[in-house]
Design a protein around this nucleic acid. Sequence first.
DNA 1: TCGGTTCGACGAATCGGTTCGACAGGACGA
DNA 2: TCGTCCTGTCGAACCGATTCGTCGAACCGA
Lengths: 336, 336
Amino acid sequence: MNIGEIARRAGVSRSTVSYALSGKRTVSEETRRRIQAVIDELDYRPNAAARALKEGRTRTLGLVIPPASLRLTDMQLGFVASVVEAAARADLDVLLSPSGGDHDRSFERVVSGRRVDGVILMEIRLEDERVTRLQQTGLPFVTIGHTAHPHGTCWVDLDYAALIARCVHHLADLGHRRLALINRSTELVAAGYGPAQRALAGFTEAVTQRGLTGVDLCCADDAPSGETCFEQLRADHPEVTAIATINEAALPGIQRAAERAGLAIPADLSIAGVAARHWAEDFRPPLTAADVPTEMGAHAVDLLLERIATPDSPPRHLLLTPPISLRSSTGPAPTR
Amino acid sequence: MNIGEIARRAGVSRSTVSYALSGKRTVSEETRRRIQAVIDELDYRPNAAARALKEGRTRTLGLVIPPASLRLTDMQLGFVASVVEAAARADLDVLLSPSGGDHDRSFERVVSGRRVDGVILMEIRLEDERVTRLQQTGLPFVTIGHTAHPHGTCWVDLDYAALIARCVHHLADLGHRRLALINRSTELVAAGYGPAQRALAGFTEAVTQRGLTGVDLCCADDAPSGETCFEQLRADHPEVTAIATINEAALPGIQRAAERAGLAIPADLSIAGVAARHWAEDFRPPLTAADVPTEMGAHAVDLLLERIATPDSPPRHLLLTPPISLRSSTGPAPTR
DNA sequence: TCGGTTCGACGAATCGGTTCGACAGGACGA
DNA sequence: TCGTCCTGTCGAACCGATTCGTCGAACCGA
């Protein structure tokens, strides 16, 4: 059932059916009704590929996610969910591309086969080949997170430096003098992953400003690494009484190791971080954390649609600094 | 840069370029090289829409997920991840359609706009309009979970009845005599959600078989509901010493409420369930559970590809019964 | 009655690929 | 030497929509 079949049955030309559907030219009420009746009867829907070919747009957004093998964090999942939901609201579909390596087939298919009208990129590195590639293709895109050269691109991001600094100040206010930052993996830091670098910068600056001593550690994004990381921390710096972290995946491990070491949270050890709200609430004890706004993905979609509509407008950015929600994982420093 | 441009620069016809690319007819080595050189230089990639239009297939799979507003469980996230990964391995893209209601635009776009070659459906109900809709369109599809009429369709599912029965037997072996099943939400059960119904059936049968007393409760898929649900359970049936559940989202709440009631796990209360492995391991204490196989999504993709290739073959099913991994959330019944 | 609008519909071109039929020219066997 | 087969290439049709130019009929005022 194509448009020709509809036209035949309604006794009109194909163009008339098209105009009846799009409303771009007037069609008499009588004709329109006849066409609509046939369409309803046959349950006709225009072929998306044909339309995309002619119109030059696909009504589809690409979403580049970390490779599926890596478990998505709750925060990342929240991005994906809100992107998909916002896209659905705008009657757009979302094409998923798992791509962590800088040069994989799925990513190439999506960007260079003109399969999508625009792309949203997650897990951005400070120097990111995918961003470079997108720039050279001219495909509109928005990143969640930003690169070292943020002015030329559209993005929405969390101000990790400010967020971690707030955690430090909060902990300092509670009397903690020796803090640790548990960052994300060594590889990510080495690869120039922005949040990791900025978290470190924010931590260092706040610690200095408050005259505290701070140590920072890298830790892979999973619970077992969290355990070994915490054990390492205890061995090297037993004096630490508070932890700030952006590594939500490692937290269950950190907590497990703390428990094994006989440390109660928050009596002996305070923990503050950055995490999705649900996740922070489900944590035991509920985690004091900057709650990542659920609508970040929606912001990204808005920015992208704007960019698709007016590709030459100056790129816009959104740097979010959600407030810290005080829960039960932080408390006064132990009096020793 | 379209195929005509490549042809012009290489001094051949468009069809020759197409054949050089697809290999469906012989092209002389000399010509092929010239064409390839031009393609490499211009970084040409065939337009996906044009190809889809002509070939009648889109090299894209549709994945229908629960609406984004509901937080995906770790198990569901595992399905999505493994579907996406398996599809990428087969050089297919995945189009996401969030659709919980039975009649929404995103779902209709995907199934009736011929945007995908096949569909994978999650969160199936015993009577599911989406399945009916797909059957009438004739689009190949596979469900993760199955309906009340499972013979006509392709699916892969967990044998919840057997899984919950195993949990019951395990708990009975540990000496527990009074058990509770914490199921999923009342609405889901009322709507005929298969896993919920089958879990209940398996629970009831195993409890009867072992001569135990069992109570079953419904609980919405979130931690706060888990808390109130457990409080209700304690109020109505304080004698219960063990819980079996398929509601992983409610578990943090259940555990929180148990803790507040002064119950230690597993000393005073044992819990066994069905959950993603990572999730069970990160739980405190680590959860004795049937580990949902990570490759379920991959199985679904395999079945779907088979179905797309031979639409008239008899539908195949896969009913998985992963073993229970013993961890620390179950123990001997308290001697009272 | 005639020229100028407006309305409603049609036909043809187009988007960018794939594929079928045709065909030129060389190799080969009879 | 002729017919046949094979190889490599081309031209044209086609997939299913959108859109531009055109055109007849009705209508209007002069």
